[in-house]
Design a protein around this nucleic acid. Structure first.
Lengths: 258, 258
DNA sequence: AGAGAATTACTCAACTTGAGAACAACAAGG
DNA sequence: CCTTGTTGTTCTCAAGTTGAGTAATTCTCT
């Protein structure tokens, strides 16, 4: 109605947002970030999980997570943005290299997903090369890379978040150059194929994969170097490549195909 | 800390923990939902925007949005889940058909995105067929379908949210059957092509598009009926189809191609 | 009725894909 | 050092898909 234009204030949902607004009274929901960090070990996808040290659901596996620091407090300075919060809670579980691929997965906010209170959880995904096991030092609660089939004993709705993450990863491998995020700076085509086979869960035709990767502009760049050794049981030394400029693959690699 | 590992579950401890938990201590941020509702009018993508009736940024276009109702209050019952909140704030701006396509776009939480306080905003997308203009009745502030090129006068970071929505829509048309969500229950292949041309912003080869759609299993189903009339300036009456079962397209329609 | 237009079918060369064979370069064991 | 097995890479070819254009069909409009 026309009153809206001239500025008279009628929107119930926005009443309260005046300068005297007290967030604690009108914002009875907590915001957390949870991180699904994926890597590939021995040909199988693994996810970083931590044992819950506190109630509720103490002792169950859970995604690394924590409250978003909305403002400076005793706990530490405010998180400038949500990705900062995700990297912070991840670093609390295990050291991470400086350059990692981080992207938002989705936000989960069902009323009953946490028994304590309304918790809105922003889930992030991290794609990492194979990393050492997390230490279990003083400030680090027990955490480990576990195969992502381990879903029976996860806390809250983290099994569903994991499922969503798996499907997202499977899908993004098709039309983005994401697979290189699972590998060290230089890698062989066979290692790249290993990423696809691990995430998609099936074998690919080595020769056709090789042809297709090299035919996709910007996916990989030749380093004109060779791997130090051939395969485990003998074999030719493979050529080393690094990730190319392209973020999107044209044409894509299709999961339904060989 | 190590008590967590054995997985024992201390019921009494947990009960005491829950009752002593004060949500307000951990909730110094507000959670909102914003909805990017897209439709196609006269061959151009349009988005539902509302004039901001209040400061800050009064008078600017903004996405329909509002606070997530974390618990029952004077304003109304709690939103059971985030999609419920999105549908609620959308319905406050314009009536919507019962079946609409709703999906989460992403969550925006930069410290400075709202001048008042920390606001975490979960953005949703809605893909709708061409709908009448929003009424401007008592409970409805001024809202309108505007071409999505209208970005110069949007509030907060809504221009960025809109950009993300556009890119998401462009991308999802390639490998999902999303385009049918912009159309009424039955439609012609030409109308479907119109969706692609509007969102991708370029003409497609009509004959090849026709061949490709019919060759993609599950995309459309033949109704064995014909459209009432031919094209505007004459032309054969087109066959009517309805959306098929498939959500994912194999093979996809590629944007780079004709 | 005739012109023009939208829909659908058809044609064909160029390209891509799936499957396998063949070739090249290495490790390990006699 | 020479053979054997293994891995990486290139090649071949039939089958399928795509891009571009042409043509047939059936409608509207004048």
């Amino acid at each position: 109605m026309s009153e809206g234009i001239d500025g008279r204030y009628h929107d119930e949902d926005e009443r309260g947002f005046l300068s005297s607004y007290d967030p604690h009274v009108f914002a009875p929901a907590a915001v957390t970030v949870d991180v699904v960090a994926l890597t590939i070990r021995e040909g199988l996808p693994h996810v970083l999980l931590a044992r819950r040290a506190a109630h509720p659901q103490r002792g169950l596996w859970a995604l690394p997570g924590g409250f978003v620091r909305a403002q400076d407090s005793e706990a530490g300075p405010a998180d400038p943005d949500l990705p900062d919060a995700a990297l912070r809670v991840l670093a609390e579980k295990t050291p991470m290299p400086a350059e990692i691929h981080l992207e938002q997965l989705g936000t989960y906010g069902a009323l009953d997903r946490d028994p304590r209170m309304r918790v809105i959880s922003v889930a992030y995904m991290v794609f990492a090369p194979d990393l050492p096991d997390p230490g279990t030092g003083r400030d680090i609660s027990e955490a480990a890379w576990v195969p992502w089939t381990t879903k029976e004993e996860t806390a809250f709705d983290h099994a569903r978040v994991l499922d969503d993450a798996v499907e997202r990863a499977r899908s993004k491998l098709e039309y983005t150059s994401l697979a290189t995020a699972f590998l060290p700076p230089t890698f062989t085509i066979t290692a790249l194929r290993g990423v696809y086979e691990a995430i998609w869960g099936r074998a690919l035709h080595a020769a056709n994969f090789h042809r297709k990767i090299l035919a996709t502009p910007g996916f990989v760049e030749d380093t004109s170097e060779l791997a130090d050794r051939g395969g485990s049981g003998g074999g030719r030394r493979a050529r080393l490549y690094r990730a190319g400029e392209a973020a999107l693959l044209h044409p894509p690699l299709l999961r339904g195909a060989q």
